[in-house]
Amino acid sequence: MVTLIVDNKEIETQEGSTLLQACLDNGIYIPNLCYLNGIEDPPGSCRLCFVEIEGYDQPRTSCRVKVQQGMVVRTNTEHVRRLQKTAFELLLSTHHVECRNCPANKKCELQRIAKFLHFGLKLKRLEPLERDIEVEHEHPFLEYIPTRCVLCGKCVFVCRKRNGQPMLSFAKRGFDTVISFFGENDKPVDVCNECYACAEICPVGALLVKDSPNTSNPWKRGSFNDKGKCQTPLK
């Protein structure tokens, strides 16, 4: 076991654990979108889980830091909050806010972070960015809503984990990056085994199951804990 000090509180955690996981396990919330418990090599892409660690000048993403004995960490400094708020604001500027009509309403990770950071869901200094995206490849039973997607990549990760090969993946690049199924004439080439893990794990309601009335709202199907994390065991 390793002990470290987070926000003046001593916590204990398993050796080899990431700092982010250690904090979450001990009830210290740090905003995060792209991190999953047990993910090897966390992508570190959402840039929300910043913390300040004694001995480092700059805030670091806690998902990429392994805990060390005696580490002294602060999760709520001004510097950390500034970066978190900017990152959140940037994500929000590409996220079509329509909570009332969104199946993720009240379970959405973005709502949770907004509340935590005391940051409204309305943009103030930035203008909303319209992403000009055509959904190129339709999926027979999954619906992808790019204007909601925050590109956390959890869906790609769980799909690969379950099926060995991802049946959906990141496509294109930069600002145009999307999650894509590949198919022709609406028929996906890759055979999906309809496990819906991708829709269950999506933190913002950007992947939905369509057609079947029983499964149209994946938020009913998955079992979620209060942190909005999928409890369905990964293989």
Binding site: Q165, P166, M167, L168, S169, F170, A171, K172, R173, S180, F181, F182, G183, E184, P188, V189, D190
Partner: peptide, 25 residues
Amino acid sequence: PPALQMVAKHLGLSSCEVYGVATFY
């Protein structure tokens, strides 16, 4: 696009993964 599928099949990858790589560059 059908060529992407052929490549994916040959390498034992899913087509969407090959599509994802190709559209990156």
